[in-house]
Design a protein around this nucleic acid. Structure first.
Lengths: 121, 121
DNA sequence: AAGATTGTGCTAGCTTTCCAGTACAAGTCG
DNA sequence: CGACTTGTACTGGAAAGCTAGCACAATCTT
């Protein structure tokens, strides 16, 4: 019931981005092939390719034409403090039975609250 | 550089959802009118209306035709533990200079990691 | 060196969503 | 009661993204 099966290039990119930044995919580790990812998420190859392209553009992965796509050396993990607090939040959320989407919405709201509010009415 | 200005019905709904679940919008508090929200985010009225509709469908808001849309009584705040940890994560993320989108991606990855993998082929 | 693997590029068509403007119904407030 | 406010509904058109299939180039593997 995670509910959210990625179905757009952005969502797929976000998925791998998370895997990389959270350390679940380590330096130099290989991502599935474009074709495989397309199958996995039941999308067109062009969509999976677009996702990979975005990741490369961000410097998160390195892609060589026939060698596959691998996590770029160095620029992988986010600071441990962030990861740990993310874990804490995830655990709290699941314990409380709050859906992932809700937790994300809360995080966004809290994030915006810290900064000088752009919204004014 | 908050970057993400909501421009779709889903995103707008998510924004208010976060505001409500995080307690930034309390019980009975009134949301902007559909027309106002449409202006605020520079979208069509139908789009703002669709967002409100979704929120009502989730039971987060109550809407009476000429009295406006208000936060539904009771079903508002998420558990305090979740909110606090969300705050902690937000602070850690901003301190570390990690973007909101990245933090969200990490959260999603960590969340999925706890549960049995939905991947199946 | 030869064949298989893998990322890229392209076209055409489709589906979904949003836009814009307007009209209507239901409730509030003076 | 009467005027205003506010959410809802509708039409037609436009834009963005995905699908599907194929061809190509670069690299790996044997």
């Amino acid at each position: 019931m995670s509910g959210t099966t990625p179905s757009t290039a952005d969502e797929i990119a976000a998925l791998f981005r998370g895997a990389i930044r959270s350390g679940r995919l380590g330096d130099g580790e290989r991502l599935p092939t474009v074709r495989q990812t397309a199958k996995d998420f039941d999308v067109a190859q062009a969509t999976a390719a677009k996702a990979y392209k975005a990741l490369e553009h961000e410097g998160l992965v390195v892609t060589r034409t026939a060698a596959g796509t691998r996590v770029a050396p160095g620029a992988s993990r986010a600071p441990q403090a962030v990861i740990e607090r993310a874990r804490a939040l995830a655990e709290a959320g699941e314990d409380a039975g709050v859906s992932l989407e809700d937790v994300v919405a809360i995080l966004r709201a809290v994030w915006a609250a810290d900064q000088p509010g752009p919204e004014s009415h």
